[in-house]
Amino acid sequence: MHIPDGFLNPATLAATWVASSGSVGYGVHRLRRELDERQVPLMGVTAAFIFAAQMMNFTVAGGTSGHLLGGALAAILLGPWAAMLALTSVLAVQALVFQDGGLLALGANIWNMAVVGVLVAWAVYRALARLWGQKTWGQALAAFLAAWTSVFVASLMASVELALSGASPWRVVLPAMGGVHALIGIGEGIITLATLALVRAVRPDLLLRRRTSDVGGAL
């Protein structure tokens, strides 16, 4: 759901730039205090994997495709602030080098996917893992629902921006975007779960280590 230039009006572009730079700036502020040296390689690898996975569009229905956004995967592996920075660097490279997502709309895309997508995923995962986290199925279900919700809410956020910009009326764009991304979110959930299962099989400590730490991260 990378918004190209031309879809959003100047007021919406300005508002989303302010919101996303403020949020990423706050995230960077938190990372300066909290970022564990041992997380640095994991951040690079997670961002690289999300970039590559975002190229793998999967067909959903009616000649439409979707791809991983990675907000939940990054938030569960890295914690919310490092995830925000990782997703921001993915989106910036996509806009600057690959002409995927507009340059003026980069603020909106960062807001939708790197800020809202990550924070929603994080909030859902934290709440559900607290309820069900003792069980493996509970952790898995929490991760799946965090992934689905982050995509769905990010698509609603994009719809709000499109409606505010006059690209499409509210009553049309909200259900259309929400409907198709409710399907894409299932793919997001499956890829997120599969990747976490792989990490868990190879290095379970990457998922468990932050249980007792103040950085955030899994559980």
Binding site: M56, N57, F58, G63, A158, S168, M177, I184
Partner: peptide
């Protein structure tokens, strides 16, 4: 091997004519 179809936003933008 990725799906060549338009993504969710492109699909909506095509359908809704923006």
């Amino acid at each position: 091997l990725a799906s060549p179809h338009p993504d969710g936003l492109e699909r909506v933008a095509e359908d809704q004519g923006f």
